[in-house]
Design a protein around this nucleic acid. Structure first.
Lengths: 192, 192
DNA sequence: CAGCTTGGCTAGCGGTGCTAGAGTTCCGGT
DNA sequence: ACCGGAACTCTAGCACCGCTAGCCAAGCTG
């Protein structure tokens, strides 16, 4: 019976290795370099093994995305904790958000840009993502005014997402990045 | 000599057919359905012909994107022309922008989301895209205040882009769409 | 020890973007 | 009027993709 446990342990370990390999490969060479063949070689197993763990490549990417949500949530939480006042908290969390997207573009894409099927605006949203959203919402609460907090947060979040994703593929002038960020924060972190 | 002219005319016509086929196929079945084989079948030529017109699939997509920019610019201009006052102009152009993205998702993706190499924040940005941006900028001018108009416009544009692209792949609750749009407009179309 | 279950492997399917090289058609000079 | 050469399009194929059927060798169970 202990053998079965060892097997399950090894299997779980292998699954972690797959996700880790996908993440590292994506971060170092981009998602185009993440192929099932390459992934299989990385974990030193054959391709079909991947499909005994995940339904397909999309599911592997979704797993990486969920992991990334945890990192994002942690960084946003840290930024919020460091803030000295409410307005500065918004600026800080916005900067942290943009920095995350810039530092880990592949991870960011997996979470927000790629047409992956990870549940979002539904019941079973990953808890890590909910945490990240909650960090944003709590930071914005003092400024929501009469607006619904969730809607207000979604709108601000969209602004951040638009800024980072448009800049990342060259649609915006990089040198104006911080000014745009400050402008966005200024528009959302004001009373009345 | 006239024969050469006819040839060139036919060649130009064929190039138009390629872009039109790519656009129609993308709009009706999504970009995944746009393959070089399918495109070749559509224009009733063999695959290599495509490569005598364009450097590759990416170049074809870029051509579609440029065409789409023209449509977007026209719709934004129409919305601005219909406006009765400055604030309503912003609301109208925002609605028009969102409507364009919703009505022609494939075209919108080609312009803003796909990692295509069409020049953007550089010197030789397509004139159609510059027109679309200028429509936004002129509409926002009354509200830019002390901020640089171009930076201000980029930020508002990012907000719009974030809203439509996050909603389009299920990251936002659809039923709140109009409220978010109104909220964004409210934050940017105010004096002081 | 025999038989079955489990699980990883090889090999391959149908698809992709793209290209080399053959073959055909047509133009221009004699 | 004809023929050599240029221009152009086609067939066939390369290397890769995500994914899967079916074989084969282990190891557990009676």
């Amino acid at each position: 019976m202990a053998i079965r446990e060892r097997r399950e342990r090894e299997r779980a370990e292998r699954e972690r290795a797959i996700v880790a390999a996908a993440r590292e490969l994506a971060e170092s060479e981009g998602w185009d370099a993440v192929t099932t063949r390459r992934l299989a070689a990385e974990i030193e197993y054959s391709q079909p093994v991947l499909y005994s763990h995940f339904k397909g490549k999309g599911a592997i990417m979704a797993a990486v995305a969920v992991e990334g949500c945890g990192d994002l949530a942690a960084e946003l939480a840290a930024a919020r904790a460091d803030a000295t006042d409410a307005r500065q908290a918004v600026a800080g969390i916005a900067t942290a958000y943009a920095a995350f997207a810039e530092r880990r573009p592949a991870l960011y894409d997996a979470i927000f840009n790629l047409p992956t099927e990870l549940p979002f605006a539904s019941q079973d949203v990953p808890v890590e993502l909910a945490r990240a959203f909650a960090e944003l919402a709590e930071t914005l609460r003092p400024f929501a005014g009469d607006d619904n907090l969730e809607t207000f947060t979604e709108t601000f979040w969209s602004g951040l997402h638009g800024l980072v994703s448009l800049m990342r593929n060259g649609r915006l002038r990089r040198e104006e990045h911080e000014r745009r960020l400050a402008l966005l924060v200024d528009r959302f972190a004001r009373l009345g």
